[in-house]
Design a protein around this nucleic acid. Structure first.
Lengths: 333, 333
DNA sequence: CTGAAAGCGCTTACAG
DNA sequence: CTGAAAGCGCTTACAG
């Protein structure tokens, strides 16, 4: 790898002049500039971003930590973040937390210490203190999908509305026994989903129907949805609708119905409270409250970059951005 | 952020001594060492990996570039790579190429120049030269999922076997008119899938049935599968099976069948040539040749790290690792 | 066992 | 318009 020094030698000037010529950071005599450019090209010079970063105190990288990628909305979030960051000239450092607070803390610690200019995180909620410390230290932190810290910026969906509106829709369709499949309320968006569900149910003087499987299953997956749906059906023979917090749980529910010979939406309705692309690709397509995951990722990236570039100037105020869900009616409800 | 210098001052020693104490890189008097450790702790010192990287010429980062994340096997690959890399003490720099050679080249160029110690890529196939240059320059490149360059290490599945065995299975089940939904053969794994299909079909003296939609649709998605399946059915009324290259295409096919009132597997069989997690989560579960995507990602990460650490020693020979697919029989075929 | 010096590859005041 | 010097935060021969 050729360095500035090599270019300087070939062009017969000082490294500082090369730097200025290449960065357009000061007037350089056209003739010398031409010589420098030629030399740089000849050697195939590319600046070393690590050295630049060390010197400038900025890496042009954004860290992103999500629970997992596979079959979740986080794949879309990560894609949106990366697309937008790339456009803005930033690279992405990526980490899975597997919803394990310890792993999450490790990733966060690896990312701070000058490795990353900002962090975008869908957190476990257990490292709030650490996240605030990082922000205080000068590395902006923006929360995405999950918002646990008021003092840190965030980009989320209105999970309350996701539930509330979904339940109202089901009621309009005549449903009266609506079961909820939800993940633990200790994670903020799930608490909000629960609240929206409960309030909508109450307004109509009906009863909440929730299940929590005894086993400590991972909640955000197919099996969990499958088991919850099975229990709901067993315990409530007149159940006429199931609302699933995330669409992978909804798939589990649909599978149970299929196995039991129940048809959507005639025998029972299924709706997902936060849907993404998969919903329209099923045999029985899924009615869902959809949230714009890619756009949310892009927005989070932009907020991160703004926060990075505002530093030194007026400290960027924190921002909380909330996307409204859209009801997309398909076949399942 | 406290630096080595701060710790040195507080502990009343030279920075070099601090460095040695913290890195256990030379004997340091127990008393001074204790003082240093105490000072470091007191200040909350964490080494700056950027500075370390610049000095050591190694960043402890691996770059990964994939076409996209959303609803593809690459989400699992990326997850596997990250998990394993984390264990080995490496961070991940992530980029989407969107299967655009230009975007891919940009990402590759951003990653080289000392930013990344190795690159793992599922490539477009159009930047072979660049990839070889990067490897020659000293940054190991390992191909994952897609293998286009013989001279670069790779971790792939046996796509020929994916097709060949799937078709044989269908034949055993009595199928005689088997349509193929495939992505462009210009991308190597799809060529291999085609070859396996063609050979298996020929062995039985049957006829190949392929379609290529006229429009220039993105091939790796639901709509593409949907349209191909529709055309196959229109043009071959006696079609008794559909083989789809990737499972998202298979979903498109299943949807067409559903809309036309055709049942799997009684009326027609559907099989996916490379399946992953989604297959078992459907109303009609999908029979598929499954490939261990997470494991492939992990293996690619390990190969990358080996290549990094072998440098200077005996140059690591290139390795080509091929995973065999496993037939998983479910409901669709 | 420890300090002083050089250097990784760059940028940026400071002179001239 | 250009060069010489200092420095970003670290590591590592080189002396002692």
């Amino acid at each position: 790898m050729p360095t500035l020094k090599d270019v300087a030698q070939l062009a017969n000037v000082d490294v500082s002049t090369v730097s200025r010529a290449l960065n357009n950071t000061a007037h350089v005599h056209p003739a010398t500039k031409a010589r420098i450019l030629k030399a740089a090209k000849e050697l195939g010079y590319r600046p070393n971003p690590i050295a630049q970063g060390l010197r400038r105190g900025r890496q042009h990288t954004i860290g992103i930590v999500v629970p997992r990628l596979q079959l979740t909305i986080f794949a879309e979030i990560a894609q949106g973040v990366e697309e937008e960051a790339q456009k803005l000239g930033y690279s992405i450092i990526f980490a899975n937390s597997n919803d394990d607070p310890k792993l999450e803390a490790e990733s966060l610690n690896r990312m701070r210490s000058g490795f990353v200019d900002a962090i975008i995180i869908a957190g476990t909620g257990k490292n709030g203190r650490l996240m605030r410390d990082i922000q205080t230290e000068g590395t902006p932190v923006v929360q995405v999908v999950r918002m646990q810290e008021q003092s840190l910026s965030s980009v989320v969906a209105d999970y309350y509305a996701c539930s509330y509106e979904a339940i109202h829709y089901l009621m309009e369709k005549g449903c009266r026994e609506i079961g909820l499949i939800n993940s633990p309320r200790s994670i903020s968006p799930y608490k909000r989903r629960y609240d929206g569900y409960r309030d909508a149910i109450r307004e109509h003087g009906l009863e909440s129907i929730c299940v929590t499987p005894s086993s400590n299953l991972e909640p955000n997956n197919f099996e969990y949805g499958y088991r919850c749906a099975a229990r709901l059906l067993d315990e409530h023979p007149n159940l006429d609708a199931i609302a699933a917090a995330v669409d992978i749980q909804g798939l589990g529910a649909m599978r149970v119905l299929h196995e039991r010979g129940l048809k959507c939406p005639d025998d029972i309705r299924v709706i997902c409270l936060t849907g993404h692309a998969i919903g329209r690709m099923l045999e029985t397509t899924m009615t869902a409250m959809e949230i714009p995951a890619i756009e949310m990722g892009q927005k989070a990236a932009r907020m991160a970059v703004e926060a990075i570039e505002a530093q030194g100037g007026a400290a960027a105020a924190r921002q909380h951005l909330v996307f409204s869900p859209t009801l997309v009616v398909r076949e399942s409800a």
